[in-house]
Amino acid sequence: MIRKRLVLLAVFIAFISNGCSIEDDDANFHFTTLEIVGAELPESFDYNKTYEILVNYIKPDSCTNYEGFDVVKDSLTVRNVVAIGSVRTDIDCTVQSIEQTASFNFKVIYTDPYTFKFYTGDNSEGEAEYLEVVVPVNKS
């Protein structure tokens, strides 16, 4: 599901940046997921409020740039969060992992607790792994 959304996102961005043609053999970048290593969320949410969620991710080299988050509604109050990066393929890279922080805004629209599943990468069997954080919602 996450990989399918990444492919669709990449095709959409390629389409926009290339006008009407998405068949460009000279593309000098590709999209990738970035490893999320931590997140800062409040101990609880207040209903109908908006919160800034801080996320720490790893930028693996000098060719990779942070592009944004893909926040997908998995069920009523479960959100899968993936950090997206673009990798330049036309330059030499310096391999140096750097932890960086970015954020996204989140509006609380349900009174049930929210579960955030931050994508941390795939395990040795190729299965997605997540850092899960549950945040209860104050109903008053």
Score class of each variant (00 low, 15 high):
Val55Ser: 09
Ile36Val: 15
Val82Leu: 09
Ile98Asp: 14
Phe118Met: 02
Ser86His: 04
Glu129Ala: 13
Phe106Asn: 06
Leu34Pro: 07
Tyr110Pro: 05
Glu67Gly: 00
Asn56Met: 10
Asp61Glu: 11
Asn65Phe: 09
Ala39Met: 08
Thr115Ala: 04
Gln100His: 13
Asn56Pro: 00
Lys117Gln: 10
Arg88Thr: 14
Phe69Leu: 06
Ile58Gln: 10
Leu34Asp: 09
Asn105Ala: 14
Thr94Phe: 01
Phe45Tyr: 08
Asn48Thr: 15
Val135Leu: 08
Phe69Val: 10
Glu40Val: 13
Val81Gly: 08
Gly68Arg: 03
Gly121Asn: 08
Tyr51Gln: 05
Val137Thr: 08
Asp122Ser: 10
Gly85Val: 01
Asp112Lys: 10
Tyr51Trp: 05
Phe31Gln: 01
Gly38Asn: 15
Pro136Ser: 02
Val108Met: 04
Asn123Phe: 03
Val133Gly: 06
Pro60Cys: 13
Val71Gly: 01
Ile53Phe: 04
Phe45Pro: 14
Gln100Phe: 07
Ile84Lys: 00
Asp70Glu: 12
Tyr47Lys: 06
Glu35Lys: 08
Ala39Arg: 08
Val71Met: 05
Leu76Arg: 12
Gly68Thr: 05
Arg79Ser: 01
Thr101Val: 14
Phe118Lys: 09
Asn48Ile: 05
Asp46Ala: 15
Pro136Tyr: 00
Asn56Gln: 13
Val95Ile: 15
Val72Ile: 12
Gly68Met: 08
Lys59Asp: 13
Phe104Val: 12
Glu35Val: 15
Thr33Phe: 14
Asn80Asp: 09
Val137Gly: 06
Glu67Arg: 07
Leu54Ala: 15
Thr111Trp: 01
Phe31Thr: 02
Leu34Cys: 13
Lys117Ser: 14
Val87Met: 06
Thr94His: 04
Val37Cys: 08
Thr111Gly: 02
Glu52Val: 15
Phe106Arg: 06
